[in-house]
């Protein structure tokens, strides 16, 4: 696969390490009320869609950016990629 790195252009996916659903950007507050249930949801449960999936890739053999890549899990078509840092600052995975 080729991943359109927002800074570096198309890069081969073998330069990257995959983590999973971009919902992992939205880490709950561990000191808040009801944290245990929220963490269970955050750590374990996944939408796992057959279709559009926002997901985290780390450019490990490259510039060490974490990216949020939007990809179709049925066709593998990639619809876009952005820096995870910016996605998080904009308000998380949503």
């Amino acid at each position: 696969m080729l991943i359109p790195h927002p800074l570096l252009g198309l890069r081969d996916s073998s330069e990257f390490t995959y983590l999973g659903d971009a919902a992992l950007l939205d880490r709950p507050d561990g000191m808040a009320e009801g944290a245990a249930a929220r963490f269970h949801d955050y750590v374990h449960l996944r939408d796992n869609p057959a279709g559009i999936h926002r997901e985290l890739w780390f450019h490990e053999q490259g510039d060490r950016s974490w990216l949020v890549v939007t990809r179709n899990t049925v066709t593998h078509e990639i619809l876009g990629a952005e820096l995870a840092r910016e996605a998080r600052l904009k308000g998380g995975a949503a």
Partner: peptide, 18 residues
């Protein structure tokens, strides 16, 4: 393989990725 897809029809999210 399709557990996530099928159980979503019952409103469940699973600790599973495909």
């Amino acid at each position: 393989g399709s557990s996530g897809r099928v159980m979503a029809m019952a409103g469940m999210r699973l600790p599973i990725e495909s």
